[in-house]
C-alpha cells in the first residue's frame, strides 16, 4: 500500500495528461516518496505493447513506464475491468511487473491513500 496514489485515466498520446502523470510520479520518486501508479479507463493503453511513438516523433510512454522500477517506483497497478472492457489482458501489456486489481482491490488502494493525484 502507498501513501500517494497517482491515478492515470487517459490515453498516452491524445493529450499531455498521461505524460503529466508520469512526470508527477517520477518527481515524487526523486524525492523518495512512497508512490503508486494506477492505470485505469483509457489509461491502460499507456501500457499497451507494440507502441512506436517515434512514428509521431514522441517519447514512448510504454518504454517510460517500464523504467519506473529502476527509478524507484515499484508499485504499478492496472485496473482489471478497464483492461477486459477493451479486450485486453496481462499479455497485451508491455510491462511485466504490473499487478492487476479488481474493483475491490482498487477501492482498498484508494481508501488507504493519504493523497490522491488525478490525471
Amino acid at each position: 500500500m502507498s501513501a500517494i496514489v497517482c491515478i492515470s485515466r487517459h490515453s498516452p498520446y491524445g493529450s499531455s495528461l498521461a505524460r503529466d502523470a508520469l512526470d508527477a510520479v517520477l518527481a515524487a520518486a526523486a524525492f523518495e516518496q512512497d508512490i503508486a501508479l494506477l492505470l485505469m479507463d483509457e489509461g491502460v493503453w499507456q501500457a499497451y505493447r507494440h507502441q512506436q511513438a517515434s512514428a509521431i516523433e514522441q517519447k514512448e510512454l510504454g518504454k517510460n513506464l517500464s523504467a519506473l522500477a529502476v527509478f524507484g517506483v515499484e508499485k504499478v497497478y492496472v485496473h482489471e475491468r478497464s483492461l477486459t472492457r477493451r479486450g485486453l489482458d496481462r499479455d497485451s501489456l508491455s510491462l511485466n511487473n504490473v499487478q492487476l486489481l479488481n474493483d475491490e482491490a482498487t477501492r482498498a488502494l484508494l481508501a488507504q491513500a493519504r493523497q490522491v493525484l488525478s490525471f
Binding site: 485515466r9 475491468r81 474493483d103
Partner: peptide, 12 residues
C-alpha cells in the same frame, strides 16, 4: 463519457 460510471465502481 464513462467518468461517472468508473467513479461509481470504485466508490467506498
Amino acid at each position: 463519457n464513462n467518468s461517472l460510471e468508473s467513479c461509481l465502481q470504485l466508490c467506498s
